[in-house]
Amino acid sequence: MYHCGMRQVGERHVPFQVDLMVWSNRLDLLALSNFKGEVQVHRLHWQKVWNLPPPKENISVQAMAWRPDGKALAIGYSTGTVYVVDIEDKEVIDQYELEQEKINCDDFDSLKSNGITCITWAVRSEILESATEYNLYDDASIFLQKIPQNGTYKNHISNDCAKDFKEVKEPTQLNMLLIGYATGYIYITIFGRYPYGTLNLSHMINDVGEHKILDINISDDFSIMQVLYLDKLTNNILLSFINTSVLSAYAEEFFTVAKKHGQITQLMSNLDQTMTSITEAWEHILLEMDAKMAYYAAAVPDGGVSADLLELHMLDYWY
């Protein structure tokens, strides 16, 4: 008798029923989702990295996919919302909610028949020429300085404002986040950040029926997309090949535009946080001046503050 040699090497227990489980192809991490809509990330030795509660009650996780570099996780909820979560601190980097896919969380029938059905994070195998060319203007640090992390007002700036925007490593390969919906739509973003467009499967296959996307795959050069879907009228499962040669032919352009979009987003975040830090520092200065003025007023006789301010005003007038 032939034995394949497979054996169980471990067993772990979790407190809740597991609905989905996805391994990272780059790191020793395992993402789990349970019936409560929570997402947990564990290491191989079962150390819990973090636990992410659902955005709202009574919703579940429908699909998950790791970013090719293993540094982010895309989570699709039954409401049609997608979170792209940073692995280090479970911060929501991006959030997508298509207008035509918004679903009422209280409508359980709608949650069952709609929402996200699959997520695929595909990477183009070829390294693009524009990814290896050096461009001086790609270095944002020569235009804007980082938010100061130390100084007089460090303790008075909130953690959200003091935190610098995330340094995202420049990708060398084009990758796309493909999100399939039970209504037959496929939402595409480049790098999981730059929206590319939405495909209607009915238009692609010239069939006006109702379809549910079950799975999406794309070739290594992004020229052919394979879509597995359910025809809701006949209840048949079909596989369709869609010509996406435009994604392959204009890969360089997509890569460049999406990378610039990410840089602009980072710079805007830097500016917003800098302005917030300046505002909070100025508010602290005003509070400190008010406290010192109150202390001074308590130390001088009645009417002394008014006399001193009048004298200062006169000196300012003459000089």
Rank of each mutant, 00 (worst) to 15 (best):
H3V: 10
C4E: 15
V9N: 12
V9M: 13
E11Q: 14
D19V: 13
S24I: 09
S24Y: 08
N25F: 13
R26K: 11
L27C: 13
L30R: 00
L32H: 04
L32S: 03
V39H: 03
Q47M: 06
K48F: 07
P53S: 09
I59K: 01
I59E: 02
I59R: 02
Q62T: 08
A65C: 06
R67P: 04
P68T: 06
A72K: 06
I75P: 00
Y77V: 04
G80E: 02
T81Q: 08
V82W: 01
V85W: 03
D86E: 12
E88L: 13
K90R: 13
D94Q: 11
Q95R: 15
Q95L: 14
Y96A: 13
Y96S: 15
E97D: 12
L98W: 15
E99D: 12
Q100C: 11
E101C: 04
D106C: 07
D107H: 04
S110R: 09
S110M: 09
I116F: 01
I119W: 04
T120W: 07
A122N: 10
S125I: 10
E129D: 15
S130N: 12
A131I: 04
T132K: 14
N135L: 09
L136S: 11
S141R: 12
S141N: 13
F143W: 02
I147S: 02
P148F: 01
Y153Q: 10
I157T: 04
S158A: 05
N159A: 15
D160V: 12
C161V: 13
D164L: 12
P171V: 01
L177P: 00
G180R: 01
T183V: 03
I186Y: 01
I186H: 01
T189W: 02
I190E: 02
F191K: 02
Y194D: 09
Y194P: 00
P195F: 06
Y196V: 07
T198K: 15
L199K: 07
L201H: 01
M204F: 05
M204C: 11
G209H: 05
G209T: 04
G209L: 01
I213S: 02
D220Q: 13
D221I: 12
F222Y: 02
F222T: 00
I224E: 03
I224R: 03
M225D: 01
D231E: 08
K232E: 10
T234I: 05
T234N: 07
I237F: 05
L238N: 12
N243H: 14
V246H: 14
V246T: 15
S248M: 10
A249M: 15
Y250W: 12
A251P: 00
F254N: 06
F255P: 00
T256I: 06
K259C: 12
Q263C: 08
Q263W: 09
M268P: 02
M268K: 11
S269N: 12
N270E: 13
N270G: 06
N270A: 07
L271D: 09
T274C: 05
M275T: 06
I278S: 04
T279W: 07
A281V: 04
H284D: 05
I285H: 04
L286C: 09
M293E: 05
M293I: 03
A294E: 11
Y295C: 02
Y295K: 08
A297F: 09
A297C: 10
A298F: 05
A299D: 06
P301L: 03
V305C: 03
S306P: 04
A307M: 03
E311L: 05
L312K: 14
M314E: 07
L315G: 12
W318K: 13
